[in-house]
């Protein structure tokens, strides 16, 4: 009888503590999620479809499966974005051959400024225009540039906030080259 009670008490306390601890953990975890609701490394990259500015193609992210994708969010009024553009342009021909696609999503409001920019910088990789800000909202983009490196399986391998250097860009390309595994 005594032992029985003791056991009951143990079970009761264990259950109450378990529920309370679970609540504490849920709270802490969800507060972290709150801080960081963006797409993280390890997540599948959410799909979107946008029209190209420097060409007639329409790009859907999921259709690029099988290729490594560098997804770059930028705008013409953003100075650090302009710095990394030449590096992307420089590496593009070589890595396109190796199965990597660059997709630069412009967050400008008008296509005109994007077109002018492409002409000024002679960009050959596809630049798409997020006119209504849908994709920006989907990826919860804060400061730009923000760049996602997505492997051929569609999984985000790396998220980089801020401009990239040539060396780092090349190193990150290595991580998403197709046919590695």
């Amino acid at each position: 009888m005594n032992a029985d009670r003791k056991k009951k008490r143990f079970v009761f306390r264990a259950i109450v503590l378990f529920v309370l601890i679970a609540a504490v953990i849920v709270t802490l975890v969800s507060s972290f999620m709150e801080d960081n609701p963006v797409v993280k490394a390890g997540d599948m990259a959410p799909n979107f479809v946008l029209k190209q500015v420097n060409g007639d193609q329409t790009f859907e992210l999921h259709k690029l499966r099988g290729k490594g994708v560098m997804l770059n969010f930028w705008a013409t009024y953003c100075d650090p974005c302009k710095e990394e553009m030449p590096y992307m342009e420089q590496l593009y021909p070589e890595y396109k051959e190796k199965g990597i696609e660059i997709l630069a999503v412009s967050l400008d409001t008008t296509e005109l400024v994007v077109k002018n920019f492409i002409d000024d910088y002679d960009l050959t990789f596809p630049v798409v225009h997020d006119k209504r800000g849908d994709v920006m909202d989907l990826y919860k983009i804060g400061p730009i540039p923000t760049t996602y490196f997505i492997n051929p399986e569609g999984e985000v391998v790396r998220v980089v906030k801020g401009p990239l250097t040539l060396n780092r860009l090349e190193a990150y390309f290595q991580e998403i080259l197709p046919g590695q595994n």
């Binding site: 309370l20 709270t27 709150e34």
Partner: peptide, 22 residues
């Protein structure tokens, strides 16, 4: 209000409240 230790502190007050009461 968003820092983890503050949230933890408030959560522990909640735990203390439940157990003290029971």
């Amino acid at each position: 209000y968003g820092s983890w230790w503050y949230i933890l502190l408030i959560a522990l007050i909640g735990v203390s409240l439940v157990i003290c009461s029971i």
